[in-house]
Design a protein around this nucleic acid. Sequence first.
DNA 1: ACCCATAAAGACAGCGTTGTCAATATATTG
DNA 2: CAATATATTGACAACGCTGTCTTTATGGGT
Lengths: 334, 334
Amino acid sequence: MSRITIIDVANAAGVSIKTVSRVINREPNVRASMRAKVEAAIQSLGFIPNTAARSLAGTRSFVLGTIFDNPSPSYIVAMQRGAMIACRESGYHLTIEEIDIAAGDIAFQMEKMLATSRMDGVILSPPVTECEPVLDALEAKNLPYVRLTPVDFGRRSHAITINDSAAAAEVAGHLWDLGHRNFAVITGPASHGSSKLRLDGFIAGIIAKGGKAKQVRVVQGDFTFRSGMAVGRKLLEGKNRPTAIFASNDDMAAGVFSAAGQLDLKVPRDISIAGYDDSAIAELVWPSLTTIRQPITEMAAEAARLLIERRGEEAIHTVEMPYKMIVRQSTGPA
Amino acid sequence: MSRITIIDVANAAGVSIKTVSRVINREPNVRASMRAKVEAAIQSLGFIPNTAARSLAGTRSFVLGTIFDNPSPSYIVAMQRGAMIACRESGYHLTIEEIDIAAGDIAFQMEKMLATSRMDGVILSPPVTECEPVLDALEAKNLPYVRLTPVDFGRRSHAITINDSAAAAEVAGHLWDLGHRNFAVITGPASHGSSKLRLDGFIAGIIAKGGKAKQVRVVQGDFTFRSGMAVGRKLLEGKNRPTAIFASNDDMAAGVFSAAGQLDLKVPRDISIAGYDDSAIAELVWPSLTTIRQPITEMAAEAARLLIERRGEEAIHTVEMPYKMIVRQSTGPA
DNA sequence: ACCCATAAAGACAGCGTTGTCAATATATTG
DNA sequence: CAATATATTGACAACGCTGTCTTTATGGGT
C-alpha cells in the first residue's frame, strides 16, 4: 500500500517526471498530446501529489491563513467553510489565526505569527481588513492578502466586495414602499468602514424614493446586541418614535427587538426592524428578521482561489459578489 | 535571509544533525548535557524545524483534523480555537472536515476524505462522535481519534468528557432550591447520546432533593430553536403548566423564551427556563439564560494534545473536564 | 533543403528532515 | 580488570517533488 508517486505516473505515461510535474502545476510548454497522456495516467493511478515534497522542493507552502478578530461565530464559520472548500480543491491547508486588534501590540503579534507560520497568502475579514498595522506587516513580508470588505482605501490588494450601499438602499426602498416615512438607522462603530457605507446607502435609497435625508435619524451602536438594545430603547421611548429602524447588523437588530419587547411594542405592528448579515440570529428572533444576506462562504472561497490561482500576477483583482435582501416578518406596513 | 536549518544548529552546538533531531523530537537516549547544548543553540538561532521536510522524511504529517456536522457555529468556533491553539504549540496544522451524517453515503464520504487528506489524528464532536460508520472508517484506516463526548459505548478511543448527568443534576437542584416542584425537560434527539444523560441526570437531581420522577414531564425536541419553540408552546399552553423548564441546549431554551413571549408569560416570573451549553445566545436573550458552561475550547485543546503527544501509546485516555453552572436571570423563585 | 529561433521534453541536483544501521562511550557483571 | 551489555552519538541514504540547465523537437523564413 505504498503510495503512488510522480515516478509511477511518469513510467505509466512514458514521460519524464519533470513533464508530469509540469502537468500537475499547469505549466506552459507542454504539448496537448503529452498532457492528455499524463492526465490519463494520473487518473488511472489515482495519483495525489505529496504536499510535503512539493513544498520542500518548491517555493509554496500550500497553506493559506485566515486572520480575524472576534466577529460573530456564524460569520467565521461561514467564511472558514468557504476558504476550506477552495483550499481542498487545490490541496491547500487553511490555518486560523485569531488576533486581538484592540491590544496595543498588534505589530508584535503579527511579527510572531508571520515568523512561525508559513503561509502563501492570507484572507482578512472585517474589522481586520481595516487595521493598518496588520496590512503593514503583511506588506512588509510581501505576503499576498485578500480582503473581504467593501471598503477600499487605496491599499494594493485584492478584495472581494459586496455593494453595501446598494444593499442598504434596497432596504430603504423596501421600507419606503411599505409606507414608512419616519426612519432611524443604527450604525456600527466608525472604525468599521462598512458603517458609513450602509448609512449613506440607506439615505441615498430614501432620497431615490423622493424622501429627504432629514427623515432619517442616525444613532450609533457598536455591533453588539447590548448596544442595539440600549440605543433601540432610547429611540423607541423618545418622542416622535420612528416607525422603521434599520440596524447595520443583525445582532443590533435583535437588541432592538428586545427593547421593543420591554416596552410592549409589537414587531412589526408598532415598529418595523431590519438588520444586515442574515446571521443565525435572524431566524432565531421572533418574528424573524428582514435582513441582507451576503454570500460569505462563496466570498471566502473566491478569496482563496484568488490567492491560489493568481500567484505572482501583478494586477489587482476586485470581485464584487451579489447580495440579497431577505424579507421576513419583522418588517410590515407602517 | 535564508532560513536556519538543523545543520546550522548542529554546527553551533557541535553535534550531529541526528542529535539535534533527537532533541527536537524528545527522543530518549540523549544525555542531559547534550540536550542542554542543543537547546541553547536552538534558542539562540531561533530555529524552527521545517514541517514539510519533517513529514517528508518521517511518518507524521503534522496535520490534525476536526470532523463535525452542523452543530452550532459557536460550538464549532470554540472547538476549533482550542484545537488550533494546541496544534500551533507543536507546529501542527488543523484541517476542517464537515460531513453530513444524515446523508446515506457516509462511508463513501469518509473514504474520499481519508484518501485525499493526510491526517495524523482527528477530533470528533457530537453528533459525529456517535456515528458508527465514521468510527468504523477511522478504525479501518487505523487513524487515532479523540471524541469530545460524555457518551461512552465501548469504542476503543480516547475521549474528553464532561459529566453531563452531574451537570443536569445541578440544574435540577438549583431549580428545586428556588422552590419549583413542577418541571419539564426538553430532551434532544435520541440519536444524540447526551440527551439521555442530561435527562437522567436531571431526574436524579430531583430525586436527590427528595422529589419524585413523576414531577418531571419529558418532551422531545431536536436541538433547534424551532423545536424548542414548538414544544415549549405546547407545554406552556397545556394544563398543569410547569413552573420550570430545562432545555437540553440553549437554542431550544431560546425557543421556549419565544413561546413564552407569544403567550405573554414573563420569564422568570411566570416560568423559569434553563439551558445547556452557554452558547452565545444565552447572553443575547432577555432575560439572559441560566445554563451549563462546558470548557469547549480547553476540551478541544486537550484532545489535540492527546493526539499529538501520546502517539503510539496503547492506553486509552479519558479526560474529564469541569463544567460550570452559570446562573443568570432566566431562573427565579417559583 | 538549410539555418536559426523557439518550443517542448528530459536529466539531475537539491530541499531539510528522519529512519536505519554502524560506531563509540559508558555501565555492569563475574 | 576483562568482557559483555547497554546507552549514546554519528554517518548517510532516502522521502517525493521542483528549479535549473541541457538536450531535443518543431516551425518559419530563405
